[in-house]
Design a protein around this nucleic acid. Structure first.
Length: 631
RNA sequence: GCUGCUGUAGCUCAGUGGUAGAGCACUUCCUUGGUAAGGAAGAGGUCAUGGGUUCGAGCCCCAUCAGCAGCUCCA
């Protein structure tokens, strides 16, 4: 298996005074080292055998304490500051501040300097308990409005504690390290805006992110990792490898697929259709533009008008660009009467949809305004529902794991506000999803309130190079659209009954999945996906005929070949082919011509081997046929 | 949408109010080469766009567009 994601460097979890004694190294690390947050993909966690085991507290405690240190430094530099929250997070910590002036990069340097100054005085971190009124009084006297509000939200049965060092005091439940001059290493990283309490309607504070480690080398390794991961960013690779582009002239959030990525996508689609045909799906195609009424019936207009592109009037009738494919599939279903004998119907479409995402959220290929869903709808009877869901889960597993991905699955329940349909229908849909997952042996994380407005769903998420999660696959149970569109089938007993719809996507969006894929492979696509699979490199011009002959043979066999027969130095050709991350470079010189062989330089390997050209071709074709991930 | 930052050649970036720069990539010529930079010459930019200040703007101000980090949101 080739190198995939750049793994996060090892972190020594220091457990000496850890309150948690039992469990595996990994679970302990998850609890005490990373604050109970998800362990990022590729992070290797080890119990402590640190050569400098002088850190008697978990990293999350250290980082939380360093966030206090930072806040006290900000207070001493900007006395008018008001404080928000300042927790430890997955890779570090942050603290939110309200200040009259924006913080800049150079302020971070000043703050770091002040932090070292304060730590040098060796202040102890002292905990004190207060009553609710005392606490509010202490905070109100210092004008800490946000903190006063925070006191109000502490449940009645919880202790209210403050942590103090020097002249700094903060409402905080702890725990903390004992003294701030302990040996550790920190760095302030970025400043960004964040709403107070995560609420768009409330003031925006300035958030400083930073990180801290007990061991200097680990801090350095972490920072080096962040740099390294940038090279895997799909936007960077998209430019370097000539995969895709975005254009101000076209508008934000619209992806232009270049030929090389077009090739990758076509292979993804081929694979997808193969698996869907095996799974009993049939292709459908629906228009990109429909009368607005269609989306009024579906409820999209009520719930998502602000994210739909504005109507266009054609002969005075308003039309909309489709934000979803389901109403189109429903029209096909409704086109004639349906019998129970036909169900389940599984209809699939690579349907391109347009949604006006808010300007701040578009991100490379991951979050865009026009994208192709690998959409399908299953129309089935209530009896068939759990089996259908289990079947979709199996298909998700087959397709997603073919790319070497591991996913996390979430069960998303009814949203608190925007939803349609009865409570009973939501409940039975939740049950069907749980049951389907159980049949397929899929573990589900809860996602309360995360459902679609028309029904609950199972979402599958993948991580990008930085460990940020992106939703790809989704399975959505829908009792509501069949109701709204008055869908029916004639059952065995002659009665008209309501079918259930399952909406599902596996890649989710071709754009997003491909973006995650680029990062996952760091641009080194497996053979079956690689835009160029083989580069033929003749050593001298006189070997060009042989290279061209092989190129023709390989192409006729279905391989994607770059025959580099220009009159350039072979060093240059090799450099070019390696830059393009071509899986196999085939060198053709005097010996190879004479023996009808090729010398194969495999991507990621230093060893080369000389093999008969026909043998190489047969082996490569076999690897493509099995969609192997390794070369 | 919000807060902050950014926008100079295909890419990476210099350029603090007075004639637009470098490296790599590209083109041509020379080099006929056995595994990641052979040599020379050349071409390439309304300094994101639109206003403003100024004798003069890549540089200062305003707006718009786009990008980046984060927050919020994501059928």
């Amino acid at each position: 298996m080739e190198f995939v994601l750049t793994p996060h460097p090892p972190i020594h979890i220091l457990l000496r005074s850890s309150p948690v004694a039992a469990g595996t190294a990994e679970s302990r690390a998850g609890q005490v080292g990373l604050g109970g947050l998800a362990i990022p993909r590729g992070v290797l966690l080890m119990a402590s055998q640190s050569p400098r085991g002088d850190g008697p507290y978990p990293l999350s405690t250290l980082r939380h304490s360093v966030s206090h240190l930072m806040a006290s430094a900000v207070q001493s530099l900007f006395p008018e500051v008001k404080f928000g929250f300042g927790p430890s997070i997955e890779h570090g910590f942050y603290y939110d501040f309200q200040l009259s002036d924006p913080l800049e990069a150079k302020d971070l340097k000043r703050i770091e300097k002040e932090m070292r100054k304060i730590a040098k005085r060796s202040p102890e971190l002292v905990c004190a308990e207060y009553t609710r009124d005392q606490a509010k009084d202490r905070l109100a006297r210092r004008g800490q409005d946000f903190k006063v509000e925070a006191v109000d939200e502490i449940p009645a049965d919880e202790r209210i504690t403050f942590y103090t060092h020097g002249d700094w005091e903060d409402l905080c439940e702890g725990p903390h390290i004992d003294r701030l001059d302990r040996s550790y290493h920190f760095k302030l990283q970025t400043v960004a805006g964040a709403y107070w309490r995560g609420d768009e309607g409330r003031p925006m504070l300035q958030r400083i992110y930073g990180t801290a480690f007990w061991i200097k080398e680990e801090l350095e390794a972490h920072l080096a990792w962040l740099e390294k991961v940038k090279e895997q960013d799909h936007r960077r690779l998209g430019t370097d490898l000539d995969l895709f582009s975005l254009h101000a002239e076209a508008g934000a959030g619209f992806v232009f697929w270049h030929p090389r990525l077009g090739t990758v996508r076509r292979e993804m689609e081929k694979f997808w259709w193969e698996e869907h045909e095996k799974g009993g799906y049939e292709p459908v195609y629906t228009p990109h533009v429909s009368r607005e009424d269609l989306f009024a019936i579906s409820g999209h207009l009520d719930n998502y008008a602000d994210m739909m592109y504005a109507p266009m009037a054609i002969e005075e009738i308003p039309y909309r660009v489709k934000p979803m494919n389901c109403p189109g599939h429903i029209l096909i279903y409704k086109n004639r009467g349906r019998s129970y004998r036909e169900l389940p119907l599984r209809w699939a479409e690579l349907g391109t949809v347009y949604r006006h995402e808010r300007s701040g959220v578009v991100h490379g290929m991951m979050r865009v305004r026009g994208f192709t869903q690998d959409d399908a709808h299953v129309f089935c009877t209530p009896d068939q529902l759990a089996d259908e869901i289990a079947g979709v889960i199996e298909l998700v597993k087959t397709i997603v794991s073919a790319f070497g991905f591991q996913f996390t699955a979430y069960l998303a329940s009814r949203p608190e506000e925007k939803f349609i349909g009865s409570e009973e229908s939501w409940e039975s849909a939740m049950k069907a999803l749980s049951k389907g997952a159980e049949c397929a042996g899929l573990a589900l994380e809860p996602d309360p309130g995360g459902g679609a407005f028309y029904g609950p769903k199972i979402d599958f998420k993948l991580k990008d190079a930085l460990g940020r999660e992106w939703q790809v696959s989704t399975i959505q149970c829908d009792f509501n659209l069949p109701e709204r569109f008055d869908l029916n089938y004639t059952d065995r007993d002659g009665q008209q009954k309501r079918p259930i719809m399952v909406h599902r996507a596996i890649y989710g969006s071709l754009e997003r999945f491909c973006g995650v894929l680029i990062e996952h492979f760091a641009g080194r696509f497996p053979l079956w996906l690689a835009p160029t699979q083989v580069a033929l490199i003749p050593i001298r011009e006189e070997h060009g005929d042989y290279a061209r002959e092989l190129a023709g043979l390989f192409r006729r066999s279905g391989m994607r070949v770059d025959c580099m027969d220009q009159s350039a130095h072979m060093n240059k050709k090799i450099k070019q082919a390696k830059k393009d991350k071509v899986p196999y470079l085939l060198i053709c010189g005097e010996r190879e011509v004479a023996e009808r062989t090729v010398t194969v330089a495999t991507r990621g390997e230093s060893e080369q081997r000389t093999v008969p050209a026909d043998d190489f071709l047969a082996a490569a074709l076999a690897r493509v046929a099995e969609r192997a991930l390794s070369l």
